[in-house]
Design a protein around this nucleic acid. Structure first.
Lengths: 338, 338
DNA sequence: CTCTGGCACTCTTCGCACGCGAGTGCCAGA
DNA sequence: TCTGGCACTCGCGTGCGAAGAGTGCCAGAG
């Protein structure tokens, strides 16, 4: 229904607006892009695009700017993902390879993404629920007090205190530790519950209470969703947002502090590839004037967490998508190696 | 040199300016504070205060605003610390008591501080170097690969991979684990090096290399200063800064992302009580228009880390200092209990 | 010597009118 | 269907004048 040229006009508008941050008029368009037609023709096309809701004018007698719907069409149909150049890829790899532990990997990833895209970067820690158990450790802190330490294949460590209903001997502890590990080491979190179900039965009745307590603490740790942490960075880039700050920037900062909101935001993107949510497509109100570009990453073939950037709807989508995709890929590699 | 009344005038100026965010004139002063003198007199005093550099006027024919030096005098001589009210104290305690682990304690503290002071809150994780070892755990991941886990009395957990020069048997591992813990458990970090010095000698020659490697990794972990992490929150409060945002807010956001800068900032405050650094007293340039209120907190009598807030120099110092001090006190309690 | 009231002066801020320029919509003709 | 031309609409920057806030200074009173 939209002719090829009109799509080209839309593409040109998006590109120019992203570049200049100013509404773009018909004359400027014909000058910067050789569309082979006159401004008047472009004006007709623009009127049509406006009728369809792809562009809008802030005031009468101003140029046009793309609407959320316009960006959506641009992302879906008119633009690809711009791949990173070879030097950029090398730089990404070098930068990430210097990391010493998981925290450092995540921290570096955030910095890198923020720098590459000049936007706010968000990186979710590799999620517990999708990874596997590397080791479970039990320490006796006091006669009736244990510490449970869970180590995942992504190098993440979670610890919990366990208050035992009854004193628990060193030998029982060693026994439990050994049995636990032989059953769950290397297994996926989701499989753990059924694997340890009958474990209390192997113990003396006096120890069963403690064993059950330990197990339920372990299961809690595994499913605990609110423990999904994330790191954000590059908030200073928000100052490049617009000239009408206070109103724009404040809700965004607030949303960024609500980790729950961000986790939901990242979680919603089910697409296996790069996902783009534009403006009002974001459920959270404070992010209605931003776009979120996210993608899953993981140490193996499967995604274990998400990362992405938050920026103004007026952003360089192809470049941002390329950067996000590339960073995710390399982080995955680094995690697989460690 | 400065008469009592002039100090009162300064105090009134600071209070009014903090309240209204607008330059304050002589007439308004006499109306809002009953100084018992006429505006003309106040004008003379103001002229004197300006000569001394405590206040300044943005433009001729505008009211006066305090300078950094003026705030300094105010904080040092004219204002005390405003204690929290009983309900506030209860609220603090309740909020912090819900925390489940160290991360949660820190996260809650940040939220709380940001909310109470309506400014940006910064909380340093309890520092490794000043705390004691609760437990050291060694896990065998592969024949020549160990994981070292260090648990501190503040509940913090650090892990490191150790690549062994030679395979290391389970029995040797158990031996090392036991010896290590009997020596260092409950000891201060600073004492650990001398306590484990001769440990390799107790092992067979084939294991000594690995033992040494493990020990040096442990010592590295103990001293590693760049591992001092911190959490910040309440950045949305930056939007209340001033009306001339972009220029003010950007460097602050940038400084906040430089954890090194913040750690240095907190570290500089040696005072045992609440420390206030005003405007240009902050070494970092981006923070020249902000004040930092910080204080140490710890689980015992001694401070193990710092926390504080960053806000505009025009802030409610007594209230902020009171909130910071109170939060630090309760966090200390919580840490001591866990 | 200190405080007070009065007065002239300085600037900032606000409202308003005006002109410019960008950009549009529409129309007639190719 | 495209093009060139033309009238029209607005937003924006500028200049000016009035209003208001606040100061500094001075002479006089206590």
């Amino acid at each position: 229904m939209l002719s090829e040229r009109r799509l080209q006009v839309l593409r040109a508008i998006v590109q120019d607006y992203v570049g200049t941050e100013e509404p773009v008029g018909s004359k400027a368009l014909t000058e910067r892009h050789n569309l082979g037609v006159s401004p008047a023709t472009v004006r007709n096309d623009m009127a049509a695009l406006e009728d369809e809701g792809f562009i809008a004018q802030p005031h009468t007698s101003a140029g046009r700017i793309p609407t959320d719907k316009g960006y959506r069409l641009f992302v879906d149909k008119l633009a690809g993902v711009k791949p990173m150049t070879a030097p950029e890829r090398r730089a990404i790899q070098n930068f990430l390879e210097g990391a010493v532990d998981l925290d450092d990997v995540v921290a570096r990833t955030v910095r890198l993404l923020a720098q590459l895209t000049r936007q706010v970067a968000v990186v979710q820690y590799p999620s517990l629920t999708r990874s596997t158990v590397r080791h479970v450790e039990l320490l006796s802190l006091a006669p009736a007090r244990l510490m449970l330490v869970l180590i995942t294949d992504t190098g993440r460590v979670e610890q919990r205190m366990v208050d035992c209903p009854a004193p628990f001997g060193e030998s029982s502890l060693a026994d439990l530790r050994a049995r636990l590990n032989s059953r769950v080491a290397g297994r996926r979190f989701t499989d753990v519950p059924s694997l340890v179900e009958d474990l209390p039965e192997a113990f003396e009745s006096e120890d069963r209470g403690t064993v059950s307590t330990v197990l339920s603490t372990l299961l809690e740790t595994l499913v605990e969703e609110n423990e999904e942490r994330l790191m954000i960075g590059g908030t200073a880039n928000l100052t490049r947002f617009g000239h009408d700050f206070p109103l724009t920037i404040r809700p965004v900062l607030e949303a960024l502090e609500e980790q729950v909101v961000l986790l939901k935001l990242l979680g919603e993107a089910k697409d296996p590839g790069v996902t783009v949510r534009i403006g009002h497509e974001n459920a959270h109100e404070g992010l209605n004037s931003t776009s979120v570009v996210s993608v899953g990453y993981g140490s193996g073939g499967e995604a274990v967490a998400k990362l992405g950037v938050v920026g103004p709807t007026r952003m360089d989508y192809p470049g941002t998508m390329g950067a996000v995709r590339a960073v995710a890929r390399y982080v995955g590699q680094i995690l697989a190696e460690s």
